[in-house]
Amino acid sequence: MEAVASRPIARLDRRIFLALPALIWFLGFLLIPLFIVVIYSLATRGEYGAVTFNFSLGNYFRIFDSVYLKIFLRSLQLAAVTSISCLLLGFPVAYVMATASPRWRQILMAMVVIPFWTNFVIRAYAIKFLLSDYGLINSLGMFLHLWSEPIYFSNSAFSVWLGMVTNYIPFMILPLYVSLEKFDFTMLEAARDLGASSWNSFWKVLVPLIKTGLITGLIFVFTPALGEFVVPDLLGGAKTMLIGNLITEQFMKTRDWPFGSALSLLLIVAVLVSLTIYLTNRDSRVQH
């Protein structure tokens, strides 16, 4: 009977076609290029920068060459030092923000976020300028007769460190602040009331409860710091070769694109690992 005939097709919501241009864009300029990077990483550099598609894992084995392994380890070291420095300096800032009055909180928040929006080439340059032979620090030092010759700060480990830390510290402060802002500070009083020392109440109460923010912050700093090349390039000179510079050089100077592709995939793997840690870390909090 007609009365029980079912509807053959539900009305199609034509709004789904609105996503088509964006989808095509992402396919054409995000996914396909990534796929080509994978293909290139399996090719070999031929004469004069040409590429031979012979599909070997040679580029990946080359990463384990001691020269590159050293560069990789140095990058890891810089990323680790940057993350820990950002944590040590950023935690007090986040703590001060979380315990401040709403008005001060807004001001401090703006102070954390604003440099994050300024161009990082400019920020790196500003440090270079500050530490240059006749920059503010040297002029001041010599004016006060603390030292008589310009100290050669630029192209030093210190200027790289300063550049990295000031570059990435907002990524540490913001997640820490989010965790601390939700933290009920009366719990610290409760811990003290139950006889915990301030050391114990810090490590046994505060740290476990802001763990999410801590891990998120560390990942947000570590991951991009690993592939950084502009800051070391501008502030460290050519002396400190890092994985970021190495990749860039393969594309801009040596023209060994296959090897550069393999190295950049290594970077993507690092990002994916961090992302997994971040997501599982976030999920475990949701379950609580």
Binding site: A3, V4, S6, R7, A10, R11
Partner: peptide, 19 residues
């Protein structure tokens, strides 16, 4: 919403396919 099955009539006219 569209019914998965069945119809709606208003003044004896089928309307479930009218937006």
């Amino acid at each position: 919403e569209d019914p998965s099955q069945g119809q709606v009539f208003h003044k004896e006219k089928r309307i479930d396919n009218v937006p």
